[in-house]
Design a binder for these strands. Sequence first.
DNA 1: TTCTTTCAATTGGTTGGACCATTGTGCCAA
DNA 2: TTGGCACAATGGTCCAACCAATTGAAAGAA
Lengths: 231, 231
Amino acid sequence: MQALVGFVTDEGLVPGDRLPTERVLAERLKVSRTTVREALTRWQELGLVERRQGSGTYLKAAVTRNMLHMPLTLASGNDFNSLMHTLEIRRGLEAEAAALSAERVSDADIAMIEQKLIRMEEAFHERHGMSADEDWDFHLAVFRASGNPLFEQIIAAMYEMFHRFWEHPLGVRDFGHASFPYHRTLFNAIAARDPVAARAEALKLIATVEDDLKRGAANLKKQTQKNRVHN
Amino acid sequence: MQALVGFVTDEGLVPGDRLPTERVLAERLKVSRTTVREALTRWQELGLVERRQGSGTYLKAAVTRNMLHMPLTLASGNDFNSLMHTLEIRRGLEAEAAALSAERVSDADIAMIEQKLIRMEEAFHERHGMSADEDWDFHLAVFRASGNPLFEQIIAAMYEMFHRFWEHPLGVRDFGHASFPYHRTLFNAIAARDPVAARAEALKLIATVEDDLKRGAANLKKQTQKNRVHN
DNA sequence: TTCTTTCAATTGGTTGGACCATTGTGCCAA
DNA sequence: TTGGCACAATGGTCCAACCAATTGAAAGAA
């Protein structure tokens, strides 16, 4: 198991590279092919490698020692409760990240965040609605300013869960619209290096998203009732 | 693979239950034991089951169809900064989880948390120091009361990071000692269903751990300087 | 030449069987 | 009652063989 990590790092393999075949790997590491397969299965489940029958095994992410594995599992991720759960995580983490960023932000960070903010605002006015990409870029810049890479990676997973299946979660067309003004107030708090205000603004921002979500759930309920009447 | 999900759900197994042995499972599902093992290995890596040699395989989380898996692997070191980063995540999440638990906790949850608390306190007085297992059990009960399984999954990874290499992190012998009293105050706040107080107590608890960590870093620095003098 | 078809080699997937290492349990003696 | 020991149950590792999908080169047709 650890031997495999050593092999990959020693060999200097980078994402995209093709690993040796299981048979070769087994011989080189002096273990049975079964054991190699168990290890590769685990890596596959962790998203580290991709296996294609008849083709080979390909590295999907950098492999190092001291990796921290965090398998996240949502029961049937497409209902209101699961989305709400991801939001609760975001609330805890985004507030903390905003406060830390306000404490640690550098001048270069401020410039970067403001640039992302302006791009987001432009996109908003062009399309008359939130743009997921620009919005995410802005938040990303905030997380990066916190100096803690874990925020970015964990919340990225939450975002992906959120946006994986729904362009318009639960049928709310202007989803995220209400959060728009709080992006600038959040930026102002961070630029002023005011952790308390930054946390407060981040919480307000998340609260608007929660409201949207609840609104969506209410709509869904109404529709269900309508359908019941029609049937 | 999917057959295993079907089996577990059909059999009505709940977390904590012991699965049939691999050999029995293989026979029932009409596949080889190797295949069962591959599937179980994947589940293990996803945190769904725990396997104990000589004992059996135990269900750790509810298994349903339509589960959404999002494995997250973070590159992380064992240095002071990495530990500090995990603590920042914990601060954000534990505070949020404590507040949510205070809002949603059921009477049964309160009883469960109190039981874990008492066990932890007993262990503390026996060993004159924090016991990692009992401490974790207590926090786990709090997270479960929040009704959001993501808290447990994420913070479990943070804990693992913390306890992976050091029984006594950074040479601090009574690590976590100072956090002891806040476990009971946290419980009291949750039992009183007071989210604001619960959040405050959780923050105090984390703050003591941070202090310990900083103290450890200072010690380490001192020792390094001593060694330099000796050499 | 160039495109399509065919087929054999390569590669991951599955199987059954054997043995090892650890754990839990029940028996037996002190 | 208690302590230790033997044994059975269980997960972990290994092997050798075969199955199934993919790939790419060789063969053949246009």
